[in-house]
């Protein structure tokens, strides 16, 4: 039980951050607008959560220009993927344990 809780990652323990990581797990990259549309939250909200994930080293940011318009691409780092997978596994085993007890 104890070591499951250790794997629950505080950095992902928020709806928006969980959402960002979910999208980045299955896509090579995602740009700001598509993340915003998928999650349905405001610009500022997304930006601050991405910053938090970036600081942890879970997400990388790549800025470029497409047709002279600035475009920001986000992708998950190797550590990000590994830790997020651990986080999902932890949640799942936690749920399984609780179900067994019932």
């Amino acid at each position: 039980m104890k070591n499951i809780i250790i794997n629950i990652n505080k950095a992902f323990d928020h709806r928006v951050r969980l959402g960002i990581m979910s999208v980045l797990m299955v896509n090579e990259y995602a740009d700001f607008t598509s993340l915003k549309e998928l999650l349905g939250v405001t610009d500022g909200n997304i930006a601050s959560h991405i910053k938090a994930l970036e600081k942890k080293g879970y997400v990388t940011v790549e800025k470029s220009f497409i047709d002279r318009k600035p475009n920001t691409r986000y992708s998950a780092t190797k550590t990000g993927r590994k830790d997020f997978q651990k986080h999902i596994d932890a949640i799942e085993s936690l749920l399984n344990q609780k179900n067994q007890k019932l």
Binding site: L18, S22, V23, L38
Partner: peptide
């Protein structure tokens, strides 16, 4: 809810 959100976003984004 977290798990269902994760699954939903993963499939909807890809």
């Amino acid at each position: 809810k977290d798990i269902s959100d994760i699954k939903h976003l993963m499939s909807r984004s890809s």
